[in-house]
């Protein structure tokens, strides 16, 4: 249980970055009409195999050694929050297939933590890694907001550099 749900989002998305994701997509659906809040963090990182996934989901620290390995309590705490707030919690992942964490809760549940400062969360993620495409999809009953950190950036600047380098080495070789 964290004070704000945006901190949960930050926690999960930081894991996405550690998993080598090139794209992290945070989606938030806030529906007063249907009384639910859904948070989803989806990445194209290296993913987890079934055994790792089971271990992460049933995580409890067992002695000092595992604590040092720093397998966090993040997912376990978010799961607790979902269950406490009449929601569901789901993680889908496979090796090289990325990971998708979905958390839902009843929007009006009295124990539901506030969403908090989602802006700062997204900003921190963008600042943490300039190359990664951090996306936000925010949807309410009335409107949708979309953001991508790669918006307006020249397309695939890295490849351009590589191409330049390659062409220069080619010319040198020639």
């Amino acid at each position: 249980m964290l004070e704000e749900l945006s901190l949960n989002v930050l926690d999960i998305a930081m894991n996405s970055l550690s998993a080598g994701a090139r794209r992290v997509e945070v989606s938030v659906v806030e529906s007063h009409r249907h009384d639910f809040l859904i948070l989803r963090v989806r990445d194209n990182g290296r993913g987890m195999d079934a055994a790792t996934l089971t271990r992460v989901l049933n995580q409890r620290t067992t002695g000092k050694q595992s604590r040092k390995k720093n397998i966090g309590l993040g997912l376990a705490m978010l799961r607790q929050t979902c269950e406490m707030c009449d929601g569901h919690f789901h993680v889908r992942s496979a090796p090289e297939q990325g990971t998708s964490v979905t958390a839902s809760m009843r929007l009006s549940h009295i124990d539901r933590p506030p969403l908090g400062d989602l802006n700062s969360t997204i900003l921190s993620l963008c600042a943490a890694n300039d190359d990664v495409d951090v996306r936000l999809k925010y949807r309410t009953d009335q409107e949708t907001f979309n953001f991508s950190s790669q918006e307006g950036k020249p397309h695939e600047p890295r490849r351009t550099q590589e191409t330049e380098r390659k062409s220069s080495t080619t010319s040198r070789a020639a």
Partner: peptide
Amino acid sequence: QIHRNVVSVAAT
């Protein structure tokens, strides 16, 4: 709080 996460936090 009586959730199992309490034990994890206490251990940590």
